[in-house]
Design a protein around this nucleic acid. Structure first.
Lengths: 246, 246
DNA sequence: CTGGGACATTGATTTCGATCAAGGGGCGTT
DNA sequence: AACGCCCCTTGATCGAAATCAATGTCCCAG
């Protein structure tokens, strides 16, 4: 269950150095961040933050996957974000967490104490500029998801999810050499359902249907082989060219 | 059709001075903004910006209402944002518009040429800080909408929309004295449907149902009287206390 | 006042996904 | 090996919203 303890005392060694909120920082700025940072790890399945909790830190995902979700009193749940390495958690200027944050895999995050981080936002423009950029990207992603939730069919939703995860993976795997037409879904069927606004049964059925129709192929429950990416993209309902923006 | 021409040469006269992207600016900073701004007006129904268009400006809504929407090839449309006075249009660092922007009422916007505005973002922290804050608010609103689109029933969606518009109006009308338990919907039934991920028939039916059940009362097609706000809020499915975040 | 068009309501029917229900496969623990 | 647990799949049925269709209301132009 435990992953190897990580503690990149030196930010320049950090695997997310060039994508996270610190991406634009110069050495002097990194030093300031190093002063206020600390690492925390959570086991798969653990809830890291409950909606309504007081938040005295913000953080970057270093390794692992987490979800952001909202729940209604009667238990209906909607995931509102998927946090992959380099994604940012928390909001400067807010006291309490608006969403649940749940570790989907074992996860390590790099936390910054909130007050000092807020001061850095004012004093080091490279942090606030990068945070603005990341927030705008997330806003685009959220809006793309609104189209999916509001207007796509169950089949299109599943195809879109696979395509989006494939695209994000591609970014991380870039330059690995091997042509890798597969994705390992980081989510259970239930988590996929919560993300897509479906039930887990419908997710299961539509995954089976895409498999039956040859759009995807399964290796085990979680690995999705994509024999023809263009075919998959057609199934998403998105424009062939533009596609999703993020 | 034409509204009176507005041209607040002096930003300090501007009705959205304290809420827009310029809210935090000091007099010197405002002068810089004044140098690169110009006003444009659009008639109700007009599309201000098409998705894919080259954008050489960003803007603030001064008066009127606009929508942000995405359309799939087959015509399915999802609104992804409702722009009220003081809301920001456009994204620094992006060349082309990702969404359609459509004037719902007659509207006037305060445009800033993009390149100079981007430079201001770097040089005047009060602009970029405010923009970050506004972007994070929009992100919260988008995520709240994801819950609505993914998990709420048609009835809850309608109640939520009315409640949200009521809340926003309240902000603008604050201090008017008269207790005003009504809202004028700025949207047609079809636009409401596009926002809520429903069909216009379902919108119409659910509005009628809420009226039949005494949750709301109609004066004409567009004015909604809210005899009991708590009752309406119950119908939204949201937590009684926390409610929507924005 | 009359006709036309935009917007809205209501009814009948269909359909997609939810719900209810049963069972299968993999895996770690004892 | 056997049990239990979690995750997943598949089937049968139900129901909320979509779709198809007709009608109503308001407002403006002629």
């Amino acid at each position: 269950m435990n992953q190897s303890v990580v503690d990149f005392r030196d930010c320049s060694e950090c695997p997310i150095r060039h994508r996270a909120v610190c991406a634009r920082c110069e050495p002097g700025e990194l030093e300031k961040l190093e002063d206020i940072k600390y690492y925390r790890s959570f086991a798969a399945g653990q809830t890291m933050i409950w909606a309504g909790d007081r938040m005295d830190f913000v953080a970057s995902v270093v390794t692992g996957v987490a979800t952001l979700s909202q729940t209604m009193e009667d238990g209906r749940t909607q995931m509102v974000g998927l946090l992959l390495p380099s994604d940012f958690i928390g909001r400067p200027g807010r006291e309490t967490a608006p969403y649940n944050v749940t570790a989907v895999s074992d996860i390590t995050v790099c936390c910054f104490r909130k007050r000092p981080f807020e001061q850095l936002l004012v004093s080091t423009p490279h942090v606030s500029q990068r945070l603005l950029e990341m927030s705008l990207d997330e806003l685009d992603a959220a809006r793309e998801w609104m189209l999916l939730l509001g207007r796509k069919t169950a089949r299109e939703k599943i195809a879109s999810l696979i395509a989006i995860i494939a695209r994000r993976d591609e970014g991380l795997k870039a330059g690995i050499g091997r042509e890798a037409p597969f994705v390992d879904l980081p989510l259970t069927r239930e988590a996929m359902a919560d993300y897509l606004g479906l039930t887990l049964e419908t997710v299961s059925r539509q995954v089976s249907a895409l498999k039956r129709d040859g759009v995807i192929h399964l290796e085990g429950k979680r690995r999705v082989v994509i024999p023809d990416m263009d075919r998959l993209l057609e199934e998403t309902g998105d424009d062939a060219d533009g596609g999703p923006l993020v």
